[in-house]
Amino acid sequence: MKTISSQRRLRVTLWITTVLLLIFSGLSMRFGVVELSWAEFVSVVNGTTEQPMHERLIWQVRMPRLGTALAAGGLLSLCGLLMQNLFRNPLAGPSLLGVTSGSSLGVALVTMATTALGWQLEQLSFLGVIPLAALAGALGVLSIILMVSKKMNDHHSLLIFGVMLGYLTGALITILQFKSNADNIRSFVMWGMGSFADVSPSILMVLVLTLGVSYLIIQRQAMPMNHFLLGDTYARSMGTDVRKLRRNMVAICGVQVGLVTAYCGPVAFIGLTVPIVARLLVGGSDHRQTIPAATLLGMLAGLVCDQMSIWLTLPLNAITAAMGAPMLIALLIRSKNGMLRL
């Protein structure tokens, strides 16, 4: 029956993605600013290398960066999938709730404060000021949204609220930038370009753990999320508490995107594009299939975008959009029967 064929599509998708993940992970270990041979890479892995520089390069630079790209890509894509379900809109993405702009506001505030105190932001970077400010901003906005969403019965109000919050923080950021000095603005802009390079192993663990736990929670909600697609009335009549589900989705999304944005900057486009591609590949919106597919594809997207940004020495956000936008346009043109819809 249909379910079997869509399960097969899911399996094929997951297998191909896994193979690509392994290939790109391997390449990411070997190539970069410094190029290693396969023999050198293997000798680092089995501990026989005599080059401490190679060891440091693999274990302290490339591995954490690889892990970050995978975890962040997975988190953003899962979050995008949740958002598209929450707003019943295939164009929703992680940035829609205003959590990303909350992070930006946090960082902009810090930038401004350091300017006012006559410091340079770069001197404070070792304190982890930027990620902490971003996290605080994200959590601040998230708690506002959670408070407000209790009063809001439909997703349209929530959508408008999130977008308005984005504009509001945007305006504040503009004012703060206007008052800031050039060097601090530069730090802010650099953060805004996104990067998977600056994550410490302990933060990486947090990201990986968040991905694992949120994946397990979301996977268990696959059926309620399917119910949700039918609209509030049908979802409730079929046993899904839509208010609770909506609140949980907002909370999970906020944590996912808040963490990623704090440590990697506001990474654009992955969370928007990957769920759409996942639906196309598994051939439907059934969350039992799209959740695993989007997660794995997101990890691949994170990795590929990061590698591209290394090879081309361009900022991450330039790559995600430069790759994501044409892909989405091509899919739009090719899909005859509206497969991009939910």
């Binding site: 119910h227 697609l229 039918l230 049908y234 639906r279 439907g284 919106s285 059934d286 497969m339």
Partner: peptide, 18 residues
């Protein structure tokens, strides 16, 4: 109800499963 959800990504079998 009188609502008719026009979903692209859900087929009849999956709907019944839900």
């Amino acid at each position: 109800t009188t609502e008719r959800p026009r979903l692209e990504g859900i087929d009849v079998w999956t709907l019944f499963e839900m």
